[in-house]
Amino acid sequence: MVTWRQVTMNLEGGRGMMNRRRRTEILIQGNSDLAREFAEHIMEHYPYREVMSPRYGLTMIKMRETAKNSLFHLGEVLVTEAKVEIKQQIGIGIVIGMKEELAKHLAIIDSAFKANLKETKEWEERLLEEEESILTEKIKKQTELLETRVQFETMDM
C-alpha cells in the first residue's frame, strides 16, 4: 500500500523573504483594500507617472501534461495590466480579470519595491498578517470540502 505523503503548507511557516512572488500572492488573494492602502500612501508621498494606464490583454497559459511530461498551451486568460514609474523604476501590475484599480495599485507597489522605498520595509508585517488570514481561509474551505471525502467500508459477503 502506498503511504500518505502529502505536500502541505503550514500556518506556522512564517517569515522568510518577502519576494515578489509571495508579495503578489498576498496582495491578489487577500483583501484588495490592503493594496489600495499601500498604493494610496505612495501616491500621496512620491511623484509617480502612469506609464501605461490599466488595459486589458491576454496571458497564454503554458502547461505540463502528466502523460508524457511535455508542454502545451491550454488557452488564454484575460488580464488587466498597468505600469507606473517611480524614481525611474517602472513597476508592473498584472492581475487576472477586469480589475483596473487593483492593477494600478499593484504597479505602484511593484515600483515602490523596485525603487526600494522605505515604506516597503514597513509593509512586511501587514503582508505576513494578511498571508496568515488567507491561509486560514483556505484551510477552512478545504476542511469543508473534506466533508465530501468518501469513507469506504469493506462489506462482509
Binding site: 507617472r49 502612469e50 506609464v51 501605461m52 494606464s53 488595459r55
Partner: peptide, 8 residues
C-alpha cells in the same frame, strides 16, 4: 501616459 485607445 500611453492612451492605447485614442493615441495608438
Amino acid at each position: 501616459m500611453i492612451d492605447v485607445v485614442h493615441d495608438m
